[in-house]
Amino acid sequence: MKTAVIIFPGSNCDQDVLYAVRNTLGTEVRAVWHGEREIPDGTDLVILPGGFSYGDYLRCGAMAARSPVMQAVIDHGRRGGLLLGICNGFQVLTETRLLPGALLTNRIPAFICRPCLLRVESTATPFTSMYAEGQVVQFPIAHADGRYTLPDDELKALEDRGGVVFRYCDGAGNVTEESNPNGAMNGIAGIVNEGGNILGLMPHPERASEAILGGVDGCAFWRSIFSTLQERRV
């Protein structure tokens, strides 16, 4: 399994996600600069990491979505390659329109960093196959613009096709107003595209991948990807 992590100017979770993948899976991970026109041959997974690409100026992710490397990333996604956007990376994916909707300023307009509970809504994705349906996992969030929004008809279409993968919830797995940290529609924390190969989520699985940091719920996320790719090869 080969992973490429794209580094935009202002990305700041690039090294974290590189480390998490290497540490959990022991597989090859490469950093790719945003100015490149290509991603390494044979890349199985492309990750757009968290951070403040281009300072979050104009709109979060807007300028990163139009940087040189993105054409190769988009092609990778269109070919069915696995593509993951975490936090700012999710914002970039919506700006490229590879994923529907947009991420707006939090309901309470401030940055918020804290552990969050999420309900796994779908295990039928390459990113979540090793979780149980309805399982409650804990990943931290750290963002000021994570309020997932899209027009009502598109929201319905997204829900109808089972495109919601993670939802903010409480300890019992209930999706409530209180368990929703940013005001996202329907408590949506992460979604997948129709092809099932492109996932975007606001919470950070790479921050929940080691016991010493206080949680290991993210490990199954990386292992799911690994096992999906193994199966594809067979």
Partner: peptide, 14 residues
Amino acid sequence: IYDQYDSMVQTNTV
């Protein structure tokens, strides 16, 4: 206060 701070980036915070 500290909810407004990213206290975990760099994934070293024990």
